[in-house]
Computed example of a mutant assay.
Amino acid sequence: MSEAPVLHLIVCAAPPAQRVGELAELLAADGWRVCLIATPIAASWLDVDALAAQTGHQVRADWRRPGDPEPHPPADAAAVVPATFNTLNKWAAGASDTLALGILNELLGTGLPIHVFPRVNAALAAHPVYQPNLRRLRDAGVVVHDGDVLRAPDEMTPSRWAVVVDALRAARPDRQRARGT
Rank of each mutant, 00 (worst) to 15 (best):
A122P: 15
D97F: 05
V48Y: 08
I103N: 08
P113I: 01
A126V: 13
H57C: 12
D68K: 09
L51F: 06
P71T: 01
L124S: 07
K90G: 07
E106Y: 15
I114G: 00
P113K: 02
A100H: 00
D68M: 09
T98R: 02
Y130S: 02
W91N: 04
E106P: 08
Q54G: 08
H72R: 09
V116I: 13
A126Y: 11
P66H: 11
H115T: 05
P73M: 05
H115R: 15
L51P: 03
V120C: 00
T110A: 03
G67K: 03
V48Q: 14
F117E: 01
D47R: 06
T98Q: 02
R119M: 12
R119G: 06
L99K: 01
L88Y: 05
A53C: 15
R60S: 07
A122C: 14
H72P: 06
G109M: 06
P71Q: 02
T84A: 05
D62K: 14
A95V: 13
P132T: 13
R119N: 11
R64D: 12
D76V: 05
L107Q: 03
V116H: 03
V80W: 01
P118R: 01
L51N: 07
D97M: 06
A77M: 09
L104A: 01
A61T: 10
P82W: 04
T110D: 03
F117A: 00
P66K: 07
L108A: 06
W63K: 07
I103H: 12
V59A: 07
N86G: 06
V59M: 04
A126S: 14
D62V: 08
P71D: 05
N86A: 08
V80Q: 01
A126T: 14
G109R: 04
F85G: 00
A123V: 15
D49G: 14
H127C: 08
Q58S: 15
G102Y: 09
A61E: 07
T110Y: 03
Q58G: 15
V129I: 15
E106L: 14
R136L: 13
P118K: 01
P82F: 03
E70F: 12
Q54Y: 08
R60F: 02
N89I: 08
A125P: 09
L134Y: 06
P66I: 05
P69L: 12
P132C: 12
D97N: 09
P74N: 13
L112T: 03
P113E: 01
V120M: 01
L88N: 02
A52N: 11
A92V: 07
A77L: 05
G109P: 08
L104M: 04
P113H: 02
V116Y: 00
A93I: 09
E106A: 11
P132S: 06
A77Y: 05
F85S: 00
A122R: 15
T98S: 04
V59T: 06
L51M: 09
V129L: 14
H72C: 11
Q131R: 15
L99A: 04
W63A: 11
N105E: 09
E70D: 14
V116G: 00
Q54W: 08
I114R: 01
D97Y: 06
I114D: 00
L112N: 04
G94T: 07
L134A: 07
P66W: 13
P66G: 09
H127N: 08
V80D: 01
G111P: 08
A93N: 08
A53Q: 15
D49A: 15
I114M: 03
P73Y: 03
D49V: 12
A126W: 11
V116Q: 03
L51R: 07
V48T: 15
A123C: 13
V59C: 09
P118I: 05
P82R: 02
V80N: 00
